[in-house]
Design a protein around this nucleic acid. Structure first.
Lengths: 337, 337
DNA sequence: ACAGTTTACTTAATCGTTTACTTTAACGTA
DNA sequence: TACGTTAAAGTAAACGATTAAGTAAACTGT
């Protein structure tokens, strides 16, 4: 690999001058600068981020922690889309993205924080993870700039989807279609699901609707199989609901399967609604009523926030950024008025 | 950040001894080694990969290039799964994964090769990209260890899904169900699609089946919308096919939509088959007949191959690794015998 | 007892940059 | 002419590790 030293030799200048020329500093003569730049190009020079980062303590590299049930979160449609948008934004600003190693096999294992120091990340983004994990908390309590997605630490900035508003809108829509017996197969207990559940009950209350406690079923998230079981249970009740909500679109698809296995059809017999608004939702038959989360905006906001925290740590405020979703009416909720 | 120097000072030894102790080299006394390790832990030392990589010329970092239509390929179900498996494997071996920056906005832009040198990747994996891109070719012609997925450069190792065998199996199944009027909405012209198309024609030929040339439609890949248009055209023909194949499961879902919009049903009126075997395929109604690609194996093989190329460049053979898919019969192809 | 080996260290160079500080020469001004 | 200023360089240390080479002391065998 050709280094600044090689260029310096060829141009008969010192390495310092090469560095200054390539970084467009002002204490280099015009001709020298051009000679150096030309020579660098001719010799096929490319800078070495390792050396640069070592010296400057800035790696222009960002760590990402997406761990979902032992996997990377890549296979999670919603988070993959958020990450894609996040990545595009930081890359436009000259940063790169590296996964924080979450292998449990390697001995000795580095904790998330150790790994972040090891790689010298300028900042870290975390999402799609168990936020009560001690390692995650250790990372959050460090001095590394950090943003979270869909979760808020009290001493860090984060971007959250407006789950309360989203669920409120969805529920109002469903109630407006005449539904009163509404069940909810919600995900595991997290900040996200808690907000949605609160909105769910709020809208019921405002409309003086009462439902049996066990219309709300906990613990199925992104699992079509578990969801189907819950749905089966709901459908087998004598007081069967007219509409079932799910924590995400995949679960909703599981619900639809269940309904059909019972010889019922959506939305004629049972109405179904999801959450997330994955691309597929609109293409299902019937198209799924859901809330589309603005993954593009979420990723971009998280990126901008993190870059600001890195580059202007002094002036950047701690902030919770809320991104609204939009109702996608679809055809899976019937009007039973 | 606490460095080896700090440990050395505290333990009254030289930095070299600290390095050797922490790396378990044999020319360090037993007590000294333990003192150093204990002190390191107490002081919260974590190693610095930047310094280490600079010195040793080994970053234990791997670059990944997944660029799909201007996006990262993360949103591409098949590749996201492959990447997830690849990532898990290399992480188990102590490597990390960084995206090769593909932002087109940044000035000055580093080419893929320049970026790879800049970050000092030990190796690179590429997939899901235009392999004729001059920058990709530049990267392939460099000395950086490289594996490709679903494409073969003639001077590099790669992992490819056995598209020929997969399509052959799928077609034989379809023919065995009595279909003779079989159409194929295939993807853009790539090595992958060419192999599948060859298998498609081969099975037709073996069974003495002739189809109109325009039963084969090119250019729709992962685009539900474009696929629907192609399907519309096929369905509007007087000699309508009895079965339509698609280049991937998403496209197949577009096809199903089209069929239904024509007031027809799957599989009673028109049979449909996809390719990839995404999780969802089994959950559709009717469940989709498809070939499940073994993303787990593909990612793992690619990872192992790349690690071998990195660690044993001398002895590692150039190799094309072929991973078989498996037929998922599903319910979307009717038996019309 | 002495040369040779082994053990447990230290020294110092090195990887490729950046940057504070120093030097040199040219220039402007009184 | 002499002095201060400025432009355009160079010098050298530093970032945090690794490692070849050197050294001193302890140990080995005959």
């Amino acid at each position: 690999m050709v280094s600044m030293k090689d260029i310096a030799t060829k141009c008969n200048v010192s390495v310092a001058t090469v560095s200054k020329a390539l970084n467009d500093r002002n204490d280099v003569g015009e001709e020298t600068r051009e000679l150096i730049k030309r020579t660098a190009k001719e010799m096929g020079y490319s800078p070495n981020s390792l050396a640069r980062a070592l010296r400057t303590n800035r790696s222009y590299n960002i760590g990402v922690l997406f761990v979902d049930e032992g996997r990377s979160g890549l296979t999670h449609d919603y988070f993959a889309n958020v990450l894609d948008s996040f990545k595009a934004t930081i890359e436009d600003h000259g940063y790169d993205l590296t996964f924080i190693n979450c292998s449990k096999k390697r001995e000795p294992r580095l904790s998330y924080l150790e790994h972040s120091r090891y790689r010298g990340y300028d900042g870290v983004v975390i999402a799609c993870i168990d936020f009560t994990d001690p390692e995650v908390i250790e990372l959050a309590n460090s001095d590394i700039p950090l943003v979270t997605i869909d979760y808020m630490f009290n001493n860090h900035s984060g971007v959250v989807s407006n789950n309360y508003a989203g669920m409120t809108e969805l529920m109002k829509y469903i109630v407006s279609k005449g539904h009163r017996k509404i069940a909810y197969v919600c995900g595991e207990d997290t900040a996200v699901t808690r907000n949605r559940l609160a909105a769910f009950y709020k809208v019921l209350e405002e409309n003086h609707i009462e439902i049996p406690d066990d219309y709300v079923m906990h613990g199925a998230y992104r699992s079509i199989n578990r969801t189907e079981k819950f749905t089966d249970a709901l459908l087998d009740r004598p007081d069967r609901p007219t509409c079932i909500l799910y924590s995400d679109d995949y679960s909703a698809m599981g619900g639809i399967n269940s309904v059909r296995r019972h010889g019922l059809s959506v939305p004629e017999d049972i109405s179904i609604a999801g959450y997330d608004g994955i691309t597929l939702a609109a293409k299902l038959q019937p198209s799924l009523t859901t809330i589309r989360q603005d993954t593009q905006a979420i990723g971009e906001h998280a990126a901008i926030k993190l870059l600001n925290l890195i580059e202007h740590p002094r002036t950047e405020a701690l902030e919770q950024i809320v991104v609204d979703g939009t109702l996608v009416p679809g055809k899976s909720v019937a009007d039973i008025n």
